[in-house]
Structure formats: structure tokens, C-alpha cells
Design a binder for these strands. Structure first.
Length: 759
DNA sequence: GTAGGGTTAG
């Protein structure tokens, strides 16, 4: 309708312009202004501009605006508000700055513009600049603070308001509700006689978010007047809490059912896992909009029914970004990254959720490089990066151990202002831990404002994996002081901290206090930690006993802990029993073959090594090839044993040969009995010398300026000979070498490793 | 004709 009015007027106007052009000549333009363009024409133009702006056609609005011989303040205000409506903040500000006179509306529009763009400081500055403020200005500021989570600030604004109206009261109520402070919201609500229906709805909506069904219902029953939203909110409450019968009852009682009501039922069934019922309701709906379609599609996606989801997606008449994002996320999470990428490439517009989904999808499918490349692209194309894009990128950096890249992402996180929050802060923290820099992890940890249990767990596990048990246990104490309740994960961290340092008694103590002090029931991970701790300390019998007393069947990793301990202590008998069980539980688990094979090799049982190799071949298990990698000058360099691929391999081998001589001079003797293959002694030495971790360390020393730590990563356990050799290297080259294997970090310095050769 | 609050479905 609006567009229609605008269109008619513009056609009139072009006639008008045409006429003036016909009369033409530059002087005649002066005749053009004034008398014939009445105030009522200005109003008509303003109406038309609103129409254009609502349709997203800023260009048409501007052309009309520019062609007006006379404008009033409303014309300018309309341009400011229209630009803001269409997301063009800078243009809005420009018109605001250039307009000849401003009225109250001009200021209020601009203030709400700042708030909409998340610049609360800018809003406040403008507010302070105003000589006279009205209740609208105050209300705008109030809701700005509320929406950004500053409840206390919002309260201060509310308390200092010279006049309050219903909207102000609703504003402070909403501030409490949006920030989940339902007790305070209720107190406020009860302190006032009568509220408009929106405030009642607001309160019920708050209870809905907190899943407080009975409170919601009480309020609903007390309402003097109910509108459609009240019914829909209440129906949603029941639907989202699995009470579909009650939801249906209310659905029938409600005076009207609109598309919200129907969609609430559909998504209620979906959340209850009743996909078929959801579809039936969906088919019965008298009217569907894009959200209804998206809900149904999301239902299929959540149940891994991508085919059905795709069918609806193709069929729907009205897709929006969410529809595309739902499909992309679905494909990405179900491992079909190429279909996800295809949709991503084809979608008409992307937002930061699309980017986060595709980055996360590539990361999950193992294509880490592409994930990071996409992050760089995203930075170029989007002016905002959302938190979830940051977290998936950071976890990719962690998987890849791309430390330098991670640091650059950290820089972007700081710019975006996310570093002090838990969500991104924890991801940063974890990235630094897993990239081998516990020091930087610690700095991030200290900066997180409200540390949650995940923050504490991450730093505790970080310390544990780096072999700093004392620090891990200290953190555990601080966590309790900070009144954050330890959970199952915390205890895994604490027990593994004890494990990495062989603290048997303390481990035992924490294991016993788990249930007593924190009400945490030991799960298989806790038992595995304890069995590992006892076993590696040489108390194999105690470990076996603990395992026998477990209230559930041991899984492969629990047996694996026993196998690992038996290997260290050369107990072939227990090792074989454990290996048998693992073979039957996880016939595809190549790591166990390797452990057992190492055990045989170490005791010179070559026929058994061969037998195992045959068994492995017959069962079709492929041993994951060992490789190591290091980040140099922002690129990841990967090495395998006796590597022949690296462009600088000749220099590396030369360097390594030189290093070997120095090593021998410092007392290093190669541990040939650890080589798996039964070959001649000299060949064994050769193979050992060119293990992937040694190649990576050598390359790191070649390329890293003196004094900087060297960080190397290996996909399999570090070999014992490399462990000895790297200890010597750290002394000869006077450098800190940090090596990550799947179990832990080894910090080599001055000829020692902080694992105390206990890993 | 331009400005302020809020609630429900993805």
C-alpha cells in the first residue's frame, strides 16, 4: 500500500520535473522553488520516502529527497531513520550532521541508531549532548543498557528519570527478564498495581526461558486481559517442556490460532523427538511462513534425516539465510562437507553464522587448512565476526597446533572485544594450552572475567598435560575458593595431573574424595586415570584389583591403560591379557597392536612381532603412520620417518648428522632395542636418527632464532630414543623444546624433561 | 509523515 502511494506520487512528481525541464534554462530553476510546492506536497513526499525506505530502496528515497524544492525537519528525520532501518549507519549520521535544524525526534532517532549498532558509548554521548531530553530519549537509553546486559546501569537510568510512563516501567521489567533475573522481575512486577498486557507477556516469557512452567501458568491465570501472544507464549511453555497434551488443550481453548501457535506445536513435537507428529501438524497448518518451514527442516536435520530436510528445502517457497544456514550446518555436522560447501557457495547472502558453520565443518572433516583459509576470507568479507566463528577457528588452530595463526586470531578477538567472556575466552585458553604455550594460556585465563567451570577445567587440564601438576592442584584449590563447583571433567584433570607426575597417594586421596566431597560418581575415565596412575607406578596388582572392582565393564581405554603400564614394567603376561581384550573390543584399534609389538620388540621376541604383524594384516588394520609437524614462518611443516618430501630435506639431514655427532659427544647412546623391525644394528640406528620428531626438532632449530622455544607436535607417542636425544639437544642448543604427543606435553630444557621420563 | 518499550514459532 505504502509503495503504491509512493509510486503514484513519484509519477506525478516526474511530470512536475518534466514540466520544469521543458521550461528549462538554468535561471528558471529559481522559479521552481517555493510557492507551488506546498506543505502538503512535503508531507506527500515524506510519506513516499518512508515507503521507499521500507522497501529497502534507499536510492529512490534519496532521489526524491534531493528533488524536493523545500524540505522540513521530518524529511531529514525520515532519511536518517530510513538509512538506519536499512543498515546504513554512516549515511544516517551524515544526514544527521548536515541537517539544518534538529528536533527531539532527530536526536532520539539517532540515539536508537547507535544502540541498534551496538555502540552504547556513542548513544550515551549523544544523550548527554541533548539540552532537553524527553521520556523517549530516556526510554531508548534504558533499553539500550538492558539489551547489552547492563542491568545495573539500566536501573540507574530508570531511577534518575524525571518522568516515567508504561514504556519505562516495561523497560526495566524487560531488563530483568532479558538478563534472567526473574526474582527481581517478579518483585518489580508485584510492586505495581496494573501493567499493560505486553508486560504480563514479558513476565511469562521470562518464566518460559527459565522453564518455570508453574510460575508461568500462575501469571497467565491471573491476567485480566489476554491477547494472542499470551496464549502463544503459554502454549510454547508447555510444548517446549514436553507437555504436548497440555499444549494441545490450550491450543484448542485459545480464541485464535495463528502461524505462531501452529509453529510452536510443530517445534514442540520436534523437541520431543516426535518427528512424525510434527510433520502431521505441519501438513495441517492453514498458513506457513519461513519460520514454520525452517523449524520442520531443522527437525529433520537434528535427526540426521538430511534427505527429507533437503526435500523440504527445495520445496519451500520462501528461503531466508536461516534456511540455508540450517542446511549447511546439517551437512557439515553429518560429515557431508562437500554438499555443505556447495550450498555455501550458492547462497545469495551469507552472514557470520554461515561462515562459522562452514569453517567448523571443514575443521571437523579434517581439512584444517581450508578452515583457516576461510577464516581469512571471512575477515575480508564480513565487517563483523561472531563468537562461534572465533571458537571454531581457534579450535582448528589448536588441532593443527598453528600457534602463530592462533595468536593472530587472538588479535582479532581483542579487537572484537570478546577476550574477557567465557565463550571465546575458553576457546583462546584451550588454543594456547594445546599449541604448547601454557604461559600464554595462563594470561588469557587471568583475563576472563567470570570464569566458569569450563575455564577452570581447561586450565587445570592444560597444566596437567604440560606436566605441571603442582600448578594444576593449586588451581583446583583456587577454584574452590572462587566457589565454582568441580565437575566430572575437573576430576579427570586432577587425577591425570597426579598421573603425569606419579603422585599415587594424592591421586588415591582425590579419587576417594570425589564422591564424598563433591558428590561425583566415578566414571570409566576416572577409573582409567587411576589404573594408569597405579600401573605406571609399578603397582600393577593394585591396578588390576581396582579394575576388577569397577561397577561396570572396562572399556578399551581402561584396558589400554593397563597395557601401557605393563609395557613400561615389562610385564608381558598382563599386557597380553589386556591386548586380547582390546582386540576383541576394538579390532580396528591399531594403537594397541603397536604397543604390544613394542613390548615384544623390546624383549627381543621377534617371532611374536612377526605374528602380530600378520594378525594386523589379516584383520585389515592399518597402523596410522607416525608423523611430526612444526609451524615455521606461519606455515605447517610435516615430517614422516626418513622423510623424502620436504624441499629442504638435504640441509635437514646434513644438520641432523652434525647434531648426532654432538649428541654422541655428550653421552647419548641410541636405544636400538626399541626399533620395531628386526634388522641389522646399523640400519636401526639410521632409522632412529631420522624419526619424524627428530627431523621436526632439527628443522625447528635451523629456522628459529636463538632463545625462542621450539614447539613440535607428534600424532603418536614420542619414541623413547627421541625422548633421550631431545633432552640432549635442549642442553647442547640451550633452548626450550616443547613436544606434544597424544598424551601430554614434554618440556625439554637443560638436558631434562619435565615428565621426569615418566610418561 | 519521522522517534521510545515488549512478548510467542526457526
Amino acid at each position: 500500500m505504502r509503495f503504491h502511494i509512493g509510486a503514484i506520487f513519484v509519477s506525478k512528481l516526474s511530470k512536475f520535473r518534466l514540466r520544469s525541464q521543458l521550461a528549462s534554462s538554468s535561471e528558471s530553476r529559481t522559479n521552481f522553488s517555493g510557492a507551488r510546492f506546498t506543505n502538503s506536497d512535503i508531507v506527500k513526499c515524506n510519506v513516499a520516502m518512508v515507503g521507499f525506505m521500507r522497501d529497502g530502496d534507499c536510492g529512490a528515497a534519496l532521489r526524491l529527497f534531493d528533488s524536493m524544492p523545500r524540505k522540513n525537519t521530518v524529511s531529514y528525520n525520515t532519511m536518517v531513520s530510513g538509512y538506519l532501518w536499512n543498515g546504513k549507519f554512516a549515511l544516517a549520521r551524515k544526514v544527521f550532521d548536515e541537517m539544518p535544524r534538529r528536533d527531539m525526534v532527530s536526536w532520539n532517532v539517532m540515539i536508537s541508531g547507535y544502540i541498534k549498532y551496538g555502540d552504547l558509548g556513542g548513544a550515551k554521548r549523544l544523550f548527554d549532548e541533548m539540552n532537553v531530553k524527553d521520556v523517549v530519549s530516556w526510554n531508548a537509553l534504558l533499553s539500550g543498557y538492558a539489551q547489552s546486559g547492563y542491568v545495573d546501569e539500566a536501573r540507574k537510568v530508570f531511577d534518575s528519570m524525571p518522568h516515567k510512563n508504561d514504556i519505562s516501567w516495561n523497560g526495566i521489567l524487560a531488563a530483568y527478564v532479558q538478563n534472567r533475573k526473574m526474582d527481581e522481575a517478579r518483585k518489580l512486577f508485584d510492586s505495581r498495581e496494573s501493567w499493560p498486557v505486553v508486560s504480563w507477556n514479558c513476565l511469562i516469557g521470562g518464566y518460559l526461558k527459565k522453564k518455570k512452567l508453574s510460575e508461568a501458568r500462575q501469571v497467565f491465570d491471573r491476567m485480566p486481559i489476554r491477547d494472542e501472544v499470551s496464549w502463544n507464549t503459554m502454549i510454547t511453555c508447555y510444548a517446549q517442556n514436553g507437555e504436548m497434551m497440555e499444549a494441545l488443550k490450550l491450543f484448542k481453548e485459545s480464541p485464535n490460532q495463528d502461524v505462531f501457535t501452529w509453529t510452536a506445536l510443530v517445534s514442540g513435537y520436534i523437541q520431543n523427538g516426535q518427528l512424525h507428529e510434527a510433520r502431521t501438524i505441519f501438513e495441517q497448518m492453514p498458513e506457513r511462513n519461513v519460520v514454520s518451514w525452517n523449524s520442520m527442516i531443522a527437525g529433520y536435520v537434528q535427526n540426521q534425516k538430511m534427505y527429507a530436510a533437503r526435500e523440504l528445502f527445495e520445496e519451500m517457497p520462501c528461503r531466508n539465510i536461516s534456511s540455508w544456514n540450517t542446511m549447511i550446518t546439517g551437512y557439515a555436522q553429518n560429515g557431508d562437507i562437500s554438499l555443505a560447501r556447495d550450498l555455501f557457495n550458492r547462497m545469495p547472502h551469507r552472514d557470520c553464522i554461515s561462515w562459522a558453520a562452514i569453517i567448523g565443518g571443514h575443521a571437523q572433516s579434517g581439512d584444517h587448512e581450508e578452515a583457516l583459509r576461510l577464516f581469512v576470507l571471512m575477515k575480508r568479507e564480513e565487517n563483523r565476526i561472531n563468537r562461534s566463528a572465533f571458537t571454531s577457528t581457534l579450535s582448528t588452530c589448536a588441532d593443527l597446533a598453528a600457534f602463530e595463526f592462533g595468536k593472530q586470531v587472538h588479535g582479532c578477538v581483542i579487537k572484537a572485544g570478546f577476550e574477557f567472556g567465557c565463550y571465546v575466552g575458553n576457546a583462546l585458553l584451550s588454543m594456547y594450552c594445546r599449541c604448547g604455550s601454557i604461559h600464554e594460556a595462563c594470561a588469557v585465563f587471568r583475563g576472563i572475567e567470570d570464569k566458569d567451570v569450563v575455564s577452570w577445567n581447561t586450565i587445570i587440564i592444560g597444566y596437567a598435560r604440560h606436566g605441571f601438576s603442582d600448578e594444576a592442584l593449586e588451581c583446583f584449590e583456587s577454584m574452590k575458593v572462587a566457589r565454582v563447583k568441580p565437575d566430572e571433567v575437573t576430576m579427570v584433570g586432577i587425577l591425570s595431573a597426579c598421573g603425569h607426575s606419579g603422585l599415587v597417594d594424592r591421586g588415591r586421596f582425590f579419587f576417594d574424595s570425589m564422591r564424598k566431597d563433591y558428590g561425583i560418581v566415578a566414571n570409566s575415565k576416572h577409573y582409567t586415570c587411576m589404573i594408569d596412575l597405579l600401573g605406571r607406578a609399578g603397582r600393577l596388582e593394585d591396578a588390576k584389583k581396582l579394575m576388577a572392582g569397577m561397577p561396570f565393564e572396562p572399556d578399551a581405554s581402561t584396558w589400554g591403560a593397563l597395557l601401557g603400564a605393563s609395557r613400561i614394567h615389562g610385564n608381558a603376561e598382563i599386557a597380553e591379557t589386556a591386548a586380547e581384550r582390546i582386540f576383541s573390543l576394538e579390532p580396528w584399534n591399531a594403537g594397541m597392536y603397536v604397543l604390544l609389538s613394542n613390548l615384544y620388540a623390546a624383549s627381543g621376541r621377534w617371532p611374536d612381532v612377526d605374528r602380530l604383524r600378520l594378525k594386523m594384516r589379516d584383520s585389515g588394520v592399518n597402523k596410522e603412520p607416525g608423523y611430526s609437524w612444526i609451524e615455521v614462518e606461519n606455515r605447517i611443516h610435516t615430517f614422516s620417518v626418513g622423510d623424502s618430501m620436504h624441499p629442504e630435506r638435504e640441509r635437514i639431514y646434513e644438520f641432523l648428522d652434525g647434531l648426532e655427532l654432538l649428541l654422541k659427544g655428550s653421552g647419548y647412546v641410541s636405544a636400538t632395542k626399541l626399533v620395531l623391525h628386526d634388522v641389522e644394528e646399523e640400519d636401526k640406528q639410521q632409522m632412529l636418527m631420522y624419526h619424524s620428531e627428530k627431523l621436526a626438532v632439527a628443522y625447528g632449530i635451523m629456522k628459529t632464532p636463538a632463545g625462542r622455544p621450539i614447539r613440535v607436535f607428534k600424532n603418536l607417542r614420542v619414541c623413547a630414543d627421541c625422548h633421550t636425544a631431545i633432552k640432549h639437544v635442549s642442553k647442547i642448543k640451550r633452548t626450550l623444546i616443547v613436544l606434544r604427543d597424544p598424551n601430554r606435553f614434554h618440556h625439554f630444557q637443560d638436558g631434562l624433561c619435565n615428565c621426569g621420563d615418566y610418561w
